[in-house]
Design a protein around this nucleic acid. Structure first.
Lengths: 231, 231
DNA sequence: CAAATTTATTGATAAATATCAATCAGAAAT
DNA sequence: ATTTCTGATTGATATTTATCAATAAATTTG
Protein backbone atom coordinates (compact mmCIF):
# COMPACT_ATOMS: atom_id res chain seq x y z
CA UNK A 1 0.00 0.00 0.00
CA UNK A 2 2.82 2.44 0.75
CA UNK A 3 4.02 4.46 -2.22
CA UNK A 4 6.74 6.91 -2.88
CA UNK A 5 5.48 10.42 -3.11
CA UNK A 6 4.97 10.80 -6.83
CA UNK A 7 1.22 10.92 -7.08
CA UNK A 8 -0.26 14.24 -8.13
CA UNK A 9 -2.31 14.34 -4.99
CA UNK A 10 0.57 14.10 -2.64
CA UNK A 11 2.73 16.53 -4.57
CA UNK A 12 -0.09 19.06 -4.57
CA UNK A 13 -0.67 18.62 -0.91
CA UNK A 14 1.87 21.21 0.20
CA UNK A 15 0.52 24.28 -1.45
CA UNK A 16 -3.12 23.32 -1.43
CA UNK A 17 -3.26 23.21 2.34
CA UNK A 18 -4.02 26.72 3.54
CA UNK A 19 -2.33 25.88 6.81
CA UNK A 20 0.96 25.46 4.92
CA UNK A 21 0.83 28.86 3.24
CA UNK A 22 3.34 30.45 5.58
CA UNK A 23 6.00 27.74 5.18
CA UNK A 24 9.27 28.44 3.36
CA UNK A 25 10.53 25.98 0.76
CA UNK A 26 13.04 24.72 3.27
CA UNK A 27 10.33 24.09 5.81
CA UNK A 28 8.23 22.25 3.26
CA UNK A 29 11.27 20.15 2.41
CA UNK A 30 11.66 19.28 6.07
CA UNK A 31 8.06 18.12 6.19
CA UNK A 32 8.37 16.25 2.89
CA UNK A 33 11.46 14.34 3.96
CA UNK A 34 9.45 12.02 6.15
CA UNK A 35 6.31 12.02 4.05
CA UNK A 36 4.67 8.94 2.58
CA UNK A 37 1.26 8.23 1.11
CA UNK A 38 -1.10 5.33 1.72
CA UNK A 39 -4.30 4.34 -0.06
CA UNK A 40 -7.28 2.99 1.85
CA UNK A 41 -10.38 1.16 0.70
CA UNK A 42 -13.85 2.15 1.89
CA UNK A 43 -14.33 1.01 5.46
CA UNK A 44 -10.62 0.84 6.23
CA UNK A 45 -9.16 2.53 9.29
CA UNK A 46 -6.64 5.32 8.72
CA UNK A 47 -6.16 6.15 12.39
CA UNK A 48 -7.28 4.17 15.43
CA UNK A 49 -8.37 5.77 18.68
CA UNK A 50 -5.97 4.89 21.47
CA UNK A 51 -3.06 4.24 19.12
CA UNK A 52 0.20 6.20 19.20
CA UNK A 53 0.19 9.57 17.49
CA UNK A 54 3.44 9.31 15.55
CA UNK A 55 2.26 10.99 12.35
CA UNK A 56 0.11 13.83 11.17
CA UNK A 57 -2.19 12.86 8.32
CA UNK A 58 -3.21 14.87 5.33
CA UNK A 59 -6.18 13.58 3.41
CA UNK A 60 -5.33 13.85 -0.29
CA UNK A 61 -8.15 11.84 -1.86
CA UNK A 62 -11.54 10.44 -0.91
CA UNK A 63 -13.80 10.99 2.06
CA UNK A 64 -13.35 9.97 5.69
CA UNK A 65 -15.25 10.16 8.96
CA UNK A 66 -13.64 11.15 12.26
CA UNK A 67 -15.38 9.49 15.16
CA UNK A 68 -14.97 8.87 18.86
CA UNK A 69 -15.82 5.50 20.34
CA UNK A 70 -16.92 5.06 23.93
CA UNK A 71 -16.56 2.23 26.38
CA UNK A 72 -19.78 0.57 25.28
CA UNK A 73 -18.86 0.68 21.59
CA UNK A 74 -21.18 3.56 20.66
CA UNK A 75 -19.72 6.00 18.16
CA UNK A 76 -20.19 9.67 17.62
CA UNK A 77 -18.98 11.09 14.32
CA UNK A 78 -17.29 14.43 14.96
CA UNK A 79 -16.75 15.38 11.36
CA UNK A 80 -16.69 14.25 7.76
CA UNK A 81 -13.56 15.33 5.94
CA UNK A 82 -12.67 15.91 2.30
CA UNK A 83 -9.28 16.70 0.74
CA UNK A 84 -7.14 18.65 1.31
CA UNK A 85 -7.38 18.59 5.06
CA UNK A 86 -4.83 18.14 7.77
CA UNK A 87 -5.84 15.57 10.35
CA UNK A 88 -4.08 16.27 13.59
CA UNK A 89 -5.61 15.13 16.84
CA UNK A 90 -5.54 16.70 20.29
CA UNK A 91 -3.01 14.16 21.51
CA UNK A 92 -0.39 16.25 19.70
CA UNK A 93 1.88 17.93 22.29
CA UNK A 94 -0.25 16.22 24.89
CA UNK A 95 -0.25 12.44 25.45
CA UNK A 96 0.76 11.49 21.88
CA UNK A 97 -2.23 9.22 21.55
CA UNK A 98 -5.06 9.32 19.06
CA UNK A 99 -8.30 10.43 20.65
CA UNK A 100 -10.43 9.50 17.67
CA UNK A 101 -10.68 6.94 14.91
CA UNK A 102 -10.59 7.92 11.25
CA UNK A 103 -12.36 5.60 8.80
CA UNK A 104 -12.57 5.84 5.02
CA UNK A 105 -16.07 6.32 3.63
CA UNK A 106 -14.84 5.93 0.05
CA UNK A 107 -11.53 4.86 -1.39
CA UNK A 108 -9.13 7.43 0.01
CA UNK A 109 -5.50 8.41 0.19
CA UNK A 110 -3.60 10.19 2.90
CA UNK A 111 -0.08 11.50 3.33
CA UNK A 112 1.58 10.93 6.66
CA UNK A 113 4.17 13.26 8.13
CA UNK A 114 6.31 12.47 11.13
CA UNK A 115 5.09 14.40 14.11
CA UNK A 116 8.63 15.41 15.01
CA UNK A 117 9.34 17.17 11.73
CA UNK A 118 5.97 18.87 11.96
CA UNK A 119 6.81 20.06 15.45
CA UNK A 120 10.22 21.35 14.41
CA UNK A 121 8.67 23.47 11.70
CA UNK A 122 6.13 24.83 14.16
CA UNK A 123 8.99 25.81 16.45
CA UNK A 124 10.87 27.73 13.81
CA UNK A 125 7.90 29.43 12.10
CA UNK A 126 5.72 31.32 14.52
CA UNK A 127 3.28 32.43 11.84
CA UNK A 128 2.68 28.76 11.12
CA UNK A 129 2.07 28.23 14.83
CA UNK A 130 -0.46 31.06 14.87
CA UNK A 131 -2.21 29.56 11.85
CA UNK A 132 -2.31 26.30 13.73
CA UNK A 133 -3.92 28.02 16.74
CA UNK A 134 -6.53 29.52 14.43
CA UNK A 135 -7.10 26.09 12.90
CA UNK A 136 -7.69 24.58 16.35
CA UNK A 137 -10.00 27.41 17.32
CA UNK A 138 -12.13 26.68 14.29
CA UNK A 139 -12.48 23.11 15.46
CA UNK A 140 -13.37 24.30 18.95
CA UNK A 141 -16.14 26.51 17.58
CA UNK A 142 -17.54 23.46 15.83
CA UNK A 143 -17.35 21.46 19.07
CA UNK A 144 -19.45 24.13 20.75
CA UNK A 145 -22.08 23.66 18.08
CA UNK A 146 -21.97 19.90 18.61
CA UNK A 147 -22.33 20.29 22.34
CA UNK A 148 -25.16 22.80 22.05
CA UNK A 149 -27.02 20.49 19.71
CA UNK A 150 -26.58 17.37 21.79
CA UNK A 151 -27.39 19.02 25.09
CA UNK A 152 -30.74 20.56 24.36
CA UNK A 153 -32.13 19.87 20.91
CA UNK A 154 -34.82 17.49 19.79
CA UNK A 155 -34.18 15.03 17.01
CA UNK A 156 -35.45 17.34 14.27
CA UNK A 157 -33.14 20.10 15.49
CA UNK A 158 -30.17 17.77 15.70
CA UNK A 159 -30.68 16.34 12.25
CA UNK A 160 -31.28 19.77 10.74
CA UNK A 161 -27.95 20.99 12.11
CA UNK A 162 -26.26 17.88 10.79
CA UNK A 163 -27.61 18.32 7.27
CA UNK A 164 -26.67 22.01 7.31
CA UNK A 165 -23.18 21.04 8.44
CA UNK A 166 -22.86 18.52 5.60
CA UNK A 167 -24.25 20.95 3.06
CA UNK A 168 -22.26 24.01 4.09
CA UNK A 169 -19.05 22.78 5.66
CA UNK A 170 -18.40 19.48 3.93
CA UNK A 171 -19.97 19.35 0.46
CA UNK A 172 -20.58 23.05 -0.10
CA UNK A 173 -23.73 22.41 -2.02
CA UNK A 174 -27.47 22.18 -1.46
CA UNK A 175 -27.41 18.71 -2.95
CA UNK A 176 -24.79 16.09 -2.32
CA UNK A 177 -24.05 12.39 -2.27
CA UNK A 178 -22.96 11.86 1.29
CA UNK A 179 -21.58 8.33 1.19
CA UNK A 180 -23.05 7.99 4.67
CA UNK A 181 -25.27 5.11 5.77
CA UNK A 182 -28.31 5.75 7.94
CA UNK A 183 -26.25 4.45 10.83
CA UNK A 184 -23.52 6.98 10.05
CA UNK A 185 -26.08 9.74 9.96
CA UNK A 186 -27.36 8.55 13.32
CA UNK A 187 -23.85 8.63 14.76
CA UNK A 188 -23.36 12.12 13.40
CA UNK A 189 -26.46 13.41 15.17
CA UNK A 190 -26.69 11.35 18.34
CA UNK A 191 -29.93 9.61 17.35
CA UNK A 192 -30.76 6.04 16.36
CA UNK A 193 -30.91 5.12 12.69
CA UNK A 194 -34.68 4.54 12.98
CA UNK A 195 -35.21 8.08 14.26
CA UNK A 196 -33.11 9.48 11.41
CA UNK A 197 -35.25 7.56 8.94
CA UNK A 198 -38.48 8.84 10.44
CA UNK A 199 -37.39 12.48 10.39
CA UNK A 200 -36.11 12.22 6.82
CA UNK A 201 -39.42 10.72 5.75
CA UNK A 202 -41.28 13.57 7.45
CA UNK A 203 -39.14 16.14 5.64
CA UNK A 204 -39.55 14.42 2.32
CA UNK A 205 -43.33 14.60 2.70
CA UNK A 206 -43.12 18.26 3.73
CA UNK A 207 -40.78 19.11 0.85
CA UNK A 208 -37.99 20.32 3.12
CA UNK A 209 -35.31 17.81 2.20
CA UNK A 210 -35.36 15.24 -0.55
CA UNK A 211 -33.33 12.13 0.10
CA UNK A 212 -32.62 8.88 -1.61
CA UNK A 213 -30.25 6.46 0.05
CA UNK A 214 -27.14 8.59 0.56
CA UNK A 215 -28.15 11.42 -1.74
CA UNK A 216 -29.62 14.59 -0.24
CA UNK A 217 -31.12 17.73 -1.65
CA UNK A 218 -32.09 20.60 0.61
CA UNK A 219 -35.29 22.03 -0.85
CA UNK A 220 -36.21 24.54 1.82
CA UNK A 221 -33.14 25.79 3.57
CA UNK A 222 -34.97 28.48 5.55
CA UNK A 223 -37.20 25.88 7.16
CA UNK A 224 -34.24 23.69 7.91
CA UNK A 225 -32.31 26.57 9.48
CA UNK A 226 -35.35 27.45 11.59
CA UNK A 227 -35.76 23.85 12.74
CA UNK A 228 -32.06 23.75 13.61
CA UNK A 229 -32.17 26.97 15.56
CA UNK A 230 -35.34 26.35 17.50
CA UNK A 231 -34.67 22.86 18.63
CA UNK B 1 -14.27 48.41 39.70
CA UNK B 2 -11.05 48.82 37.71
CA UNK B 3 -7.86 48.85 39.74
CA UNK B 4 -4.23 49.39 39.01
CA UNK B 5 -2.32 46.22 39.09
CA UNK B 6 -1.03 46.20 42.65
CA UNK B 7 -3.02 43.37 44.16
CA UNK B 8 -1.04 40.30 45.09
CA UNK B 9 -3.25 38.19 42.87
CA UNK B 10 -2.59 40.12 39.76
CA UNK B 11 1.14 40.47 40.41
CA UNK B 12 1.40 36.72 40.93
CA UNK B 13 -0.52 36.01 37.80
CA UNK B 14 2.50 36.03 35.51
CA UNK B 15 4.55 33.28 36.98
CA UNK B 16 1.76 31.18 38.36
CA UNK B 17 0.32 30.54 34.93
CA UNK B 18 2.08 27.52 33.53
CA UNK B 19 1.33 28.80 30.06
CA UNK B 20 3.54 31.82 30.77
CA UNK B 21 6.58 29.77 31.81
CA UNK B 22 8.40 30.25 28.54
CA UNK B 23 8.06 34.02 28.45
CA UNK B 24 11.08 36.29 28.92
CA UNK B 25 10.88 39.24 31.29
CA UNK B 26 10.53 41.53 28.31
CA UNK B 27 7.65 39.53 26.96
CA UNK B 28 5.92 39.56 30.34
CA UNK B 29 6.40 43.32 30.43
CA UNK B 30 4.73 43.59 27.06
CA UNK B 31 1.76 41.66 28.35
CA UNK B 32 1.69 43.63 31.60
CA UNK B 33 1.67 46.98 29.86
CA UNK B 34 -1.96 46.65 28.91
CA UNK B 35 -3.06 44.66 31.91
CA UNK B 36 -5.80 45.68 34.32
CA UNK B 37 -7.78 43.85 36.96
CA UNK B 38 -11.51 43.89 37.66
CA UNK B 39 -13.47 42.46 40.57
CA UNK B 40 -16.85 40.81 40.04
CA UNK B 41 -19.61 39.91 42.46
CA UNK B 42 -21.27 36.49 42.38
CA UNK B 43 -23.61 36.30 39.41
CA UNK B 44 -21.86 39.04 37.46
CA UNK B 45 -20.81 38.52 33.86
CA UNK B 46 -17.10 38.67 33.07
CA UNK B 47 -17.45 37.89 29.40
CA UNK B 48 -20.58 37.86 27.27
CA UNK B 49 -21.14 35.49 24.38
CA UNK B 50 -21.36 37.39 21.12
CA UNK B 51 -19.37 40.34 22.42
CA UNK B 52 -16.07 41.48 20.92
CA UNK B 53 -12.98 39.55 21.94
CA UNK B 54 -10.65 42.45 22.68
CA UNK B 55 -8.99 41.00 25.76
CA UNK B 56 -7.73 37.73 27.13
CA UNK B 57 -8.80 37.13 30.72
CA UNK B 58 -6.86 35.54 33.52
CA UNK B 59 -8.90 34.48 36.52
CA UNK B 60 -6.95 35.53 39.62
CA UNK B 61 -9.52 35.01 42.35
CA UNK B 62 -12.84 33.24 42.86
CA UNK B 63 -14.75 30.74 40.79
CA UNK B 64 -16.49 31.15 37.44
CA UNK B 65 -18.54 29.08 35.03
CA UNK B 66 -18.01 29.11 31.28
CA UNK B 67 -21.22 28.44 29.44
CA UNK B 68 -22.70 28.54 25.98
CA UNK B 69 -26.19 29.86 25.42
CA UNK B 70 -28.38 28.75 22.54
CA UNK B 71 -31.11 30.47 20.59
CA UNK B 72 -33.83 29.36 22.99
CA UNK B 73 -31.96 30.55 26.08
CA UNK B 74 -30.84 27.12 27.26
CA UNK B 75 -27.34 27.01 28.71
CA UNK B 76 -24.71 24.35 28.77
CA UNK B 77 -21.84 24.85 31.19
CA UNK B 78 -18.60 23.84 29.49
CA UNK B 79 -16.35 24.20 32.49
CA UNK B 80 -15.94 25.54 35.99
CA UNK B 81 -12.72 27.45 36.43
CA UNK B 82 -10.54 28.32 39.40
CA UNK B 83 -7.45 30.59 39.55
CA UNK B 84 -4.98 30.82 37.96
CA UNK B 85 -6.43 30.07 34.59
CA UNK B 86 -6.21 31.81 31.28
CA UNK B 87 -9.57 32.33 29.66
CA UNK B 88 -9.14 32.65 25.93
CA UNK B 89 -11.97 31.73 23.63
CA UNK B 90 -11.93 30.22 20.17
CA UNK B 91 -12.78 33.55 18.59
CA UNK B 92 -9.10 34.44 19.03
CA UNK B 93 -7.43 34.61 15.59
CA UNK B 94 -10.81 33.71 14.18
CA UNK B 95 -13.81 36.08 14.26
CA UNK B 96 -12.74 38.02 17.37
CA UNK B 97 -16.02 37.32 19.07
CA UNK B 98 -16.72 35.57 22.33
CA UNK B 99 -18.31 32.17 21.78
CA UNK B 100 -19.23 31.69 25.42
CA UNK B 101 -20.33 33.61 28.47
CA UNK B 102 -18.31 33.66 31.68
CA UNK B 103 -20.21 34.23 34.92
CA UNK B 104 -18.87 34.53 38.45
CA UNK B 105 -20.07 31.85 40.86
CA UNK B 106 -18.42 33.59 43.81
CA UNK B 107 -16.81 36.98 44.20
CA UNK B 108 -14.00 36.85 41.66
CA UNK B 109 -11.23 38.88 40.09
CA UNK B 110 -9.74 38.69 36.66
CA UNK B 111 -6.90 40.38 34.84
CA UNK B 112 -7.51 41.44 31.28
CA UNK B 113 -4.76 41.60 28.67
CA UNK B 114 -5.14 43.22 25.27
CA UNK B 115 -5.44 40.58 22.62
CA UNK B 116 -2.95 42.42 20.43
CA UNK B 117 -0.11 42.33 22.94
CA UNK B 118 -0.87 38.68 23.59
CA UNK B 119 -0.70 37.97 19.90
CA UNK B 120 2.59 39.85 19.49
CA UNK B 121 4.22 37.75 22.18
CA UNK B 122 2.90 34.58 20.55
CA UNK B 123 4.49 35.71 17.30
CA UNK B 124 7.91 36.28 18.80
CA UNK B 125 8.05 33.24 21.10
CA UNK B 126 7.34 29.99 19.32
CA UNK B 127 7.71 27.89 22.45
CA UNK B 128 4.88 29.94 23.91
CA UNK B 129 2.86 29.25 20.77
CA UNK B 130 3.50 25.51 21.15
CA UNK B 131 2.42 25.68 24.77
CA UNK B 132 -0.72 27.42 23.59
CA UNK B 133 -1.39 24.63 21.09
CA UNK B 134 -0.99 22.08 23.87
CA UNK B 135 -3.36 24.14 26.04
CA UNK B 136 -5.98 24.13 23.28
CA UNK B 137 -5.54 20.42 22.71
CA UNK B 138 -6.26 19.80 26.38
CA UNK B 139 -9.53 21.66 25.98
CA UNK B 140 -10.36 19.68 22.87
CA UNK B 141 -9.84 16.41 24.72
CA UNK B 142 -12.32 17.64 27.31
CA UNK B 143 -14.80 18.54 24.56
CA UNK B 144 -14.60 14.99 23.30
CA UNK B 145 -15.56 13.77 26.76
CA UNK B 146 -18.45 16.20 26.83
CA UNK B 147 -19.65 15.09 23.43
CA UNK B 148 -19.32 11.40 24.26
CA UNK B 149 -21.31 11.92 27.44
CA UNK B 150 -24.08 13.93 25.84
CA UNK B 151 -24.43 11.72 22.80
CA UNK B 152 -25.00 8.35 24.38
CA UNK B 153 -25.13 8.33 28.17
CA UNK B 154 -28.08 8.06 30.49
CA UNK B 155 -28.60 10.58 33.22
CA UNK B 156 -26.68 8.58 35.83
CA UNK B 157 -23.71 8.30 33.51
CA UNK B 158 -23.80 11.98 32.66
CA UNK B 159 -24.00 13.09 36.26
CA UNK B 160 -21.28 10.65 37.31
CA UNK B 161 -18.92 12.11 34.72
CA UNK B 162 -19.80 15.61 35.86
CA UNK B 163 -19.07 14.88 39.51
CA UNK B 164 -15.80 13.17 38.57
CA UNK B 165 -14.88 16.21 36.50
CA UNK B 166 -15.61 18.55 39.41
CA UNK B 167 -13.75 16.34 41.86
CA UNK B 168 -10.67 15.67 39.73
CA UNK B 169 -10.26 18.59 37.39
CA UNK B 170 -11.75 21.49 39.30
CA UNK B 171 -11.59 20.98 43.06
CA UNK B 172 -8.99 18.21 43.20
CA UNK B 173 -10.64 16.60 46.17
CA UNK B 174 -13.16 13.86 46.95
CA UNK B 175 -15.19 16.44 48.87
CA UNK B 176 -15.85 19.97 47.80
CA UNK B 177 -18.17 22.93 48.10
CA UNK B 178 -19.14 23.52 44.50
CA UNK B 179 -20.95 26.86 44.70
CA UNK B 180 -23.23 25.40 42.04
CA UNK B 181 -27.02 25.44 42.22
CA UNK B 182 -29.05 22.43 41.11
CA UNK B 183 -29.79 24.35 37.95
CA UNK B 184 -26.06 24.86 37.35
CA UNK B 185 -25.47 21.16 37.86
CA UNK B 186 -28.23 20.45 35.36
CA UNK B 187 -26.63 22.78 32.83
CA UNK B 188 -23.29 21.08 33.38
CA UNK B 189 -24.73 17.66 32.60
CA UNK B 190 -27.46 18.35 30.06
CA UNK B 191 -30.30 17.21 32.36
CA UNK B 192 -33.09 19.06 34.12
CA UNK B 193 -32.62 20.13 37.72
CA UNK B 194 -35.31 17.67 38.80
CA UNK B 195 -33.44 14.78 37.24
CA UNK B 196 -30.22 15.87 38.93
CA UNK B 197 -32.05 15.94 42.26
CA UNK B 198 -33.47 12.46 41.76
CA UNK B 199 -30.12 10.91 40.86
CA UNK B 200 -28.36 12.62 43.78
CA UNK B 201 -31.04 11.31 46.14
CA UNK B 202 -30.58 7.79 44.75
CA UNK B 203 -26.81 8.00 45.29
CA UNK B 204 -27.19 9.37 48.80
CA UNK B 205 -29.37 6.37 49.69
CA UNK B 206 -26.88 3.98 48.08
CA UNK B 207 -23.92 5.62 49.83
CA UNK B 208 -22.18 6.54 46.58
CA UNK B 209 -22.19 10.33 46.92
CA UNK B 210 -23.18 12.40 49.90
CA UNK B 211 -24.54 15.82 49.08
CA UNK B 212 -25.96 18.74 50.94
CA UNK B 213 -26.94 21.81 48.99
CA UNK B 214 -23.73 22.65 47.11
CA UNK B 215 -21.44 20.41 49.14
CA UNK B 216 -20.45 17.02 47.76
CA UNK B 217 -18.52 14.09 49.08
CA UNK B 218 -17.70 11.15 46.86
CA UNK B 219 -18.01 8.07 49.07
CA UNK B 220 -17.59 5.30 46.51
CA UNK B 221 -15.47 6.50 43.66
CA UNK B 222 -15.21 3.08 42.02
CA UNK B 223 -18.97 2.87 41.70
CA UNK B 224 -19.12 6.37 40.33
CA UNK B 225 -16.42 5.65 37.78
CA UNK B 226 -18.22 2.51 36.71
CA UNK B 227 -21.52 4.35 36.34
CA UNK B 228 -19.75 7.02 34.30
CA UNK B 229 -18.07 4.52 32.04
CA UNK B 230 -21.03 2.27 31.40
CA UNK B 231 -23.58 4.87 30.70
C1' DC C 1 -29.42 -15.18 -12.28
C1' DA C 2 -30.56 -16.86 -7.69
C1' DA C 3 -29.26 -17.07 -2.99
C1' DA C 4 -27.42 -14.85 0.76
C1' DT C 5 -26.34 -10.98 3.22
C1' DT C 6 -26.63 -6.47 4.57
C1' DT C 7 -29.03 -2.22 5.06
C1' DA C 8 -33.32 0.37 5.19
C1' DT C 9 -37.99 0.90 6.59
C1' DT C 10 -42.12 0.44 9.28
C1' DG C 11 -45.02 -0.25 13.23
C1' DA C 12 -45.79 -1.51 18.05
C1' DT C 13 -44.09 -1.04 22.47
C1' DA C 14 -41.18 0.18 26.32
C1' DA C 15 -38.05 3.02 28.63
C1' DA C 16 -36.14 7.25 29.82
C1' DT C 17 -36.56 11.76 30.90
C1' DA C 18 -38.88 16.21 30.77
C1' DT C 19 -42.64 18.89 32.29
C1' DC C 20 -45.80 20.66 35.44
C1' DA C 21 -47.76 21.65 39.79
C1' DA C 22 -47.56 21.48 44.56
C1' DT C 23 -45.05 21.66 48.70
C1' DC C 24 -41.07 22.43 51.47
C1' DA C 25 -36.84 24.56 53.34
C1' DG C 26 -33.69 27.92 53.95
C1' DA C 27 -32.05 32.61 53.33
C1' DA C 28 -32.89 37.39 53.31
C1' DA C 29 -35.59 41.23 54.51
C1' DT C 30 -38.63 43.80 57.45
C1' DA D 1 -39.83 36.72 65.05
C1' DT D 2 -42.52 37.00 61.01
C1' DT D 3 -42.87 37.56 56.27
C1' DT D 4 -41.16 37.10 51.74
C1' DC D 5 -38.68 35.18 48.32
C1' DT D 6 -35.85 32.02 46.05
C1' DG D 7 -34.29 27.54 45.28
C1' DA D 8 -34.96 22.54 46.35
C1' DT D 9 -37.75 18.61 46.48
C1' DT D 10 -41.43 15.46 45.43
C1' DG D 11 -44.97 13.12 42.86
C1' DA D 12 -48.01 12.63 38.87
C1' DT D 13 -48.14 12.81 34.10
C1' DA D 14 -46.87 13.59 29.32
C1' DT D 15 -43.56 13.46 25.80
C1' DT D 16 -39.89 11.99 23.47
C1' DT D 17 -37.10 8.75 21.67
C1' DA D 18 -35.09 4.20 21.91
C1' DT D 19 -35.80 -0.60 21.40
C1' DC D 20 -37.44 -4.59 19.33
C1' DA D 21 -39.36 -7.35 15.76
C1' DA D 22 -40.98 -7.89 11.28
C1' DT D 23 -40.61 -6.93 6.52
C1' DA D 24 -38.74 -4.82 2.38
C1' DA D 25 -35.24 -3.30 -0.53
C1' DA D 26 -30.77 -3.20 -2.12
C1' DT D 27 -26.34 -5.12 -2.60
C1' DT D 28 -23.04 -8.76 -2.76
C1' DT D 29 -21.74 -13.39 -3.60
C1' DG D 30 -21.66 -17.81 -5.65
Amino acid sequence: MTETCQSTNCADCNRKLSLFQSLTDGQLDKINESRFEIRFGAGETLIKQGGPLTHIACLTKGLVKIHIENHGGDCFIMSVVRPMTLIIGPGFLRDNRHHYTVTALTESSACFIQVESFKKVLEENSQFALDMIAFLNKKIIRHYQNIGNLAHKHMQGKLAETLIYLSEDVFQSQEFKSNLSRQDLAELTGLTKESVIRVLKEWKEEGIVDSNSDYFKILNKDSLLKIGRNG
